[in-house]
């Protein structure tokens, strides 16, 4: 399978803490890839590196064999990468529809044309709105389109964030703990949605999650990080029986 997105030997230090120590990750096109590890293993930091919110001191980043080490976060969206945040990071004062429309920002075309409502802009806007509604429908949010986000329950907000990420029509999406804090019902729902995103829309998914049952059931293969370093890689079955991984999670017996 072709490599869609890849990082090699990434190093990130925060003062004395080494958050990513020589981490490599290879995401294959069209797969659902899990990234797991104990708290503080550096998963979020790795995501921040991949979406270019975090600079790294050593290492390389490739998107379809193109070096992207110095890209800015907004350029990553142009490439086709979208992400969600571990702590919900929405435009809480705005409606769900506005949030999704903001997500489709990279599709508005020339900003000046949009600003002055030149002929094409009106049509673009119409299309984006329709698409935003479709995206909302995909995530069962169509009834909340006009609700201000801060009035929505937590599980809905998680889905709004996912909808916003999908609105940019990404080719690859990074999900940082999409079901954290959700109840079982919501988790099951989100699991289904993640599958659909992957199958029906053909989007590559990279998933950080502590909910092992979800990770094991949806992922094609899994990376395990521990103390900022690669620990293992393999299919869910391999990971579940890997002694290193079990040690990392349960603590090593001396």
């Amino acid at each position: 399978m072709a490599s869609h997105f890849r990082c090699e030997n990434v190093m990130v230090r925060f003062g004395g803490v080494v958050a990513c120590n020589d981490v490599s990750l290879d995401v294959e096109e069209g797969k659902i890839v899990g990234v797991i590890g104990p708290n503080g293993a550096g998963k979020t930091t790795l995501f921040n590196v991949l979406s270019r919110f975090q600079d790294f001191s050593e290492g390389k980043l490739f998107y379809r064999e193109q070096r992207i080490d110095r890209f800015r976060p907004h350029q990553m969206v142009r490439l086709g990468l979208a992400r969600t945040f571990q702590n919900i990071n929405l435009f809480v004062e705005q409606s769900v529809l506005s949030n999704i429309l903001i997500g489709s920002h990279c599709l508005i075309g020339n900003p000046l044309a949009s600003l002055f409502w030149l002929p094409g802009a009106r049509r673009t806007e119409q299309e984006l709105t329709e698409r935003a509604i479709e995206t909302a429908a995909l995530l069962h949010l169509e009834r909340d389109l006009d609700t201000v986000v801060k009035h929505l329950p937590y599980g809905h907000q998680k889905r709004v964030e996912l909808a916003r990420a999908l609105a940019s029509r990404p080719k690859i999406i990074l999900l940082d703990e999409p079901v954290a804090g959700c109840n079982d019902e919501e988790s099951a729902e989100l699991e289904k949605i993640v599958r659909r995103i992957n199958r029906e829309l053909g989007i590559t998914v990279v998933l950080v999650e502590h909910d092992m049952s979800m990770v094991m059931s949806v992922c094609d293969y899994i990376y395990v990080l521990n103390f900022g370093a690669n620990l293992a890689r393999g299919t869910p079955a391999e990971i579940q029986s890997n002694p290193d991984v079990i040690n990392a999670y349960l603590g090593k017996e001396e």
Binding site: M76, R83, N89, I102, H105, S168
Partner: peptide, 30 residues
Amino acid sequence: CLVRSGVGRALMALRDAEKAAESCGINRVF
């Protein structure tokens, strides 16, 4: 026109949550 356009949305997005706006492809500098 500004407020109703995608540009206006981008500005308000930057106002409300800068990181999130950037993750939506909004060029902060521009």
